[in-house]
Design a protein around this nucleic acid. Structure first.
Lengths: 226, 226
DNA sequence: TTTTCCAAGATTGTTAACAATAGATGTTAT
DNA sequence: ATAACATCTATTGTTAACAATCTTGGAAAA
């Protein structure tokens, strides 16, 4: 649609975050990105402003732009919001899925399992996100779709920070059951499965181990003095 | 918190939209705003990018920034999203309201009625919005709070475009009943009242009369040719 | 009078240079 | 050897000038 020079930066950064190629706290230098995308720093700056408005990038004055590092409280809020929004998505998607939709979802599940078996985590994450976003698309509400896009993005960051490595991220059997219920038009079951799926995802987080510190050396040492 | 020069632009524009001082389709010139806020155009540009990311401003290449003019479809999506989010807000706010919260809400209702009697529409709109936002604050989810902030903003634009003038915008008796249910801790009733309130609001829209055209003279005349 | 075309003005988009600040390196004194 | 200090570099923030585009207005032709 809009091929403005800054939109490409936004989508590229979002894609990178969605595939966990950009971990939380990564510094995004203006020069680096302007070189990479062959544009001037003003466009990079505008892209940062848009990304900051979606809370996937944090802007620190005179320091620069950093990939956001969600706190445990933010993680809770994000998943609570996801349950809210994806419940409505489930309600409205139920019975509206075309055969193409079902085929797409089943293919995504299959490829996601393949990616997991091959330990291709970026691909797995991308496919899992596509699964949820397709459901929102079927529901047919652009506003909720955009909100969920932001939330899945932040979920990826949260999983990268607090996810227990050994565990399965998005159990493909759960996704499979969801498609079954969607195809059958069983709204209540669909809603229940989705809720369970999201609680499962959130339940796998561990907030105790690493205090997410992405501070400069100086800030890490000087704790709370001028 | 953050007193960056561009943040002031963002909040000022949002406030103006929330009070319907900036109607949908208004052009926002870069020079005009940079003069007004005593900063350079680069900051205005960044503010526009942030506002566009929240869908309250539309960016047309080589034309400039305009206050968004939501279509009837967008209006439907916005109110559906509001019902979704404010239902969760109601669920989580119920029983959590402090006496100060209740006092604030009752005062907002009273002042809103006064503003309506004095035909002070900006004030009325601002207070009505504050009422809903305070509920979100009580619920205690920053993500949903931010989403609702965007949605109430766009609701104001929608009411300005499609609202039937004679009708009452937000019946204060409805707000009153909501506070009663909140204070009583009657969650189910609170949810029901909120849903009814939002459906009431949406039901008062009329999409037939004015095709929302905020085009230049040239665009209004030359319909669909190069 | 109406339409078409062209030119002037205004606005947006881009770029580069400069200023200000933070982070890092090196030096010196204790 | 360590800590405090100064300097140096890299990065962000600001500004102004220039280029490109759109809008406006009027003149010329039908």
């Amino acid at each position: 649609m809009n091929s403005a020079p800054e939109d490409q930066i936004v989508t590229s950064v979002l894609d990178a975050i969605a595939e966990q190629r950009l971990p939380a706290g990564t510094k995004l230098g203006e020069q680096a990105l302007s070189d990479l995308f062959g544009c001037n720093r003003a466009n990079v700056r505008r892209a940062f402003a848009a990304l900051a408005a979606q809370a996937v990038v944090e802007l620190r004055p005179n320091r620069g732009a950093f990939v956001a590092t969600p706190s445990p409280e933010e993680a809770r809020d994000v998943f609570q919001a996801r349950r809210t929004i994806e419940d409505t998505v489930a309600r409205h998607a139920s019975g509206k899925a075309t055969p193409e939709d079902i085929a797409f979802l089943r293919r995504a599940i299959r490829e996601e399992r393949e990616a997991r078996e091959q330990h291709d985590k970026p691909r797995e994450l991308r496919l899992s996100r596509q699964f949820h976003m397709r459901l929102a698309e079927i529901a047919g509400n652009k506003v909720l779709e955009r909100f969920l896009s932001e939330l899945t993005m932040r979920s990826t960051l949260i999983l990268g920070l607090y996810g227990t490595k050994g565990r399965v991220l998005c159990g493909d059997e759960e996704h499979g059951e969801i498609v079954d219920a969607l195809e059958a038009g069983d709204t209540d079951r669909l809603r229940g499965l989705m809720d369970r799926h999201l609680r499962h995802l959130e339940g796998g987080l561990q907030f105790d181990s690493p205090p997410p510190s992405h501070l400069s050396l100086r800030e890490q040492l000087l704790t709370g003095q001028s």
